[in-house]
Design a protein around this nucleic acid. Structure first.
Length: 310
DNA sequence: AAGCCACACAACCGCACACTG
DNA sequence: CCAGTGTGCGGTTGTGTGGCT
């Protein structure tokens, strides 16, 4: 028996919203909030729309703190780095970009950033950076050898078993789920109680171009803080301005650059990262979140990953 | 000028989860 | 504990627009 549809699709208006409808919805939400029930809202607001449509319209376009377009390079880096880390968890990625919505970020990725990132694959993968991203969240391509095709491999082929989900099992970490529902939610992969890399760079794994060869995690002399699992990521607050969290960006500066070293040829900034990029046949996992995401592309985040905001 | 194509963005769809009675 | 319902999310589709031939 399936569930009842949320609205009568034959009777509600669909398609693009008119300015009048926008104003009607905006005025109603301003005056009354959404009342905890999007399904009932359109009727109360006098809109001939599906509740889900109203919710989407409000969240993505009518909210006062929404920004559209004008993505900065910093934001590009955040998106690319997080995509490489956790895959297409757009709500989580968007939560790190104040004023951006998951839909907006998703569209931006699909139309712009993906193209920017994908062509970087190839024989000189590690020099031209490349996210090494293949289709599919969390999947990546191993660096191609000059003479052969680029084998696509899952992370599970590349990371030590101790870093794989068995060790990072959601079940092992207990309660709670990610809550990205609140605006400005600060998703924190605080793996604090869940996973701490034995070495600051333990999460980076050196993988030989042979599909079966997994080398030891490579300790590199870089700062310990990481963007994703840092348990103390500050909450984003300044929605209107340059609102990316400094600490988070600083983290990306260290690892994001490593990950995105040749992104646009501009981001490879420090010698350590450069040295890392020179490692032959290497690919890198910046954190456990990626590992989790890769193997759980269609599942919810592990219990225990938290949202520390609000 | 018309037709075609690619791109960008808005909106929809369906599923899974959370909540509630 | 279970069923029903609302919400959130990610994938996909639809549509408008601009560039090229």
């Amino acid at each position: 028996m399936g569930r009842a549809p949320c609205c009568d699709k034959a009777r509600v208006k669909r398609g693009p919203w008119s300015p009048e409808e926008d104003e009607q919805l905006r005025a109603y939400v301003r005056a009354n909030g959404f009342g905890g029930n999007w399904i009932a809202l359109p009727h109360k607001a006098g809109l001939n729309r599906c509740g889900k449509s109203c919710r989407l319209r409000w969240l993505n376009y009518l909210r006062p703190d929404i920004r559209h377009g004008g993505y900065t390079e910093q934001e590009d880096r955040v998106i690319c780095s997080l995509y490489a880390s956790i895959g297409s968890r757009w709500s989580i990625i968007a939560s790190k970009l104040p004023g951006r919505t998951d839909n907006d970020v998703k569209n931006y990725w699909n139309t712009k950033l993906k193209k920017k990132a994908m062509p970087m694959r190839g024989p000189h993968y590690h020099h031209h950076a490349g996210l090494g991203l293949e289709a599919g969240a969390g999947a990546f391509s191993a660096p191609a050898t000059p003479s052969g095709p680029t084998p696509a491999r899952s992370w599970s082929q590349c990371v030590p078993s101790t870093l794989q989900p068995a060790a990072l099992s959601p079940a092992a970490s207990g309660s709670s789920s990610i809550d990205t529902s609140s605006s400005g939610g600060d998703m924190c992969f605080a793996a604090a109680g869940m996973y701490q890399p034995p070495h600051p760079m333990q999460g980076f794994v050196h993988v030989d171009s042979s599909p079966q060869t997994v080398l030891a995690p490579m300790p590199l002399d870089v700062p310990a803080a990481t963007g994703i699992w840092a348990p103390s990521m500050p909450a984003a607050s300044d929605v209107g301005g340059v609102a990316l969290e400094d600490a988070f960006l600083a983290d990306l500066g260290a690892y994001g650059d490593l990950l995105l070293g040749g992104f646009g040829g501009q981001l490879l900034q420090d010698n350590k990262a450069a040295a890392a990029m020179e490692l032959p046949g290497a690919c890198y996992f910046p954190n456990m979140a990626e590992m989790w995401a890769a193997d759980h592309a269609h599942a919810k985040p592990p219990q225990g990953l938290c949202n520390t905001s609000t």
